[in-house]
């Protein structure tokens, strides 16, 4: 099942941010001076790399989906800064344990880093431990984007997932419709 830019815009619309992305205005910086000083390129590459771990193998179009979603989320400077901090900590662990940045590791090694940092069993907390913040800003940020989007919902059989303004038709439809 292919994720689209439209899915990302829908996910952003559910979360109340992303005017630029919703208008089709790409503004993701490629240097640390853009977007309020965060290294958007690093955040983007890391999140796309993490999506390869946390998204199911049957979805495609992940890169465009994640990038579009980030366009909106990075419009909020505080969120961008906290996301960058979580990504930096993830990279630190990846460098220490596997000798390279998270985004360039194999998918299997990326998954090991996320597990070894404890992001699989941690409860999300934006002000918590490293594991809890990576869970909040990296893992759950991606899962929220996917499963609050119509395509993510459809993976599970729910075209109008919670958080998506999918109208008043789907709840009346049967499974064969």
């Amino acid at each position: 099942m292919e994720l689209t830019r439209r899915d990302a815009v829908a996910a952003l619309a559910a979360l109340g941010v992303g005017g630029g992305a919703a208008l089709g205005v790409g503004r993701l910086g490629r240097d640390p001076d853009a977007d309020g000083g965060v290294d958007a390129e690093r955040i983007r590459e890391t999140q796309v790399a993490a999506a390869a771990v946390v998204y199911p193998s049957e979805v495609s179009g992940t890169r465009e989906f994640v990038e579009t979603f980030l366009e909106g989320r990075l419009e909020q400077p505080a969120h961008a800064a906290a996301l960058e901090e979580a990504v930096a900590e993830l990279d630190d662990r990846a460098e220490s344990w596997y000798g390279d940045a998270f985004a360039v590791l194999s998918v299997a090694d990326r998954e090991r880093v996320l597990e070894q940092v404890g992001a699989d069993t941690a409860d999300e907390d934006p002000d918590g431990t490293t594991a809890e913040r990576i869970r909040y800003y990296v893992v759950n940020e991606l899962l929220l984007a996917l499963y609050a989007s119509p395509t993510g919902g459809e993976l599970v059989g729910l075209e109008n997932p919670q958080g998506h303004a999918g109208g008043l038709e789907t709840y009346r439809r049967g499974p064969e419709a």
């Binding site: 199911p56 699989d120 409860d123 899962l143 499963y147 993976l155 729910l158 997932p161 919670q162």
Partner: peptide
């Protein structure tokens, strides 16, 4: 359960998570 709520509170991701969501929702 709501799938998005399940997804954000589990100990799994990727294909394992999707398999669990399909088993628990619907």
């Amino acid at each position: 359960p709501s799938p998005v709520g399940l997804a954000l509170s589990g100990d799994d991701w990727g294909d394992d998570l999707l398999e669990r969501l399909r088993a628990e929702y619907g």
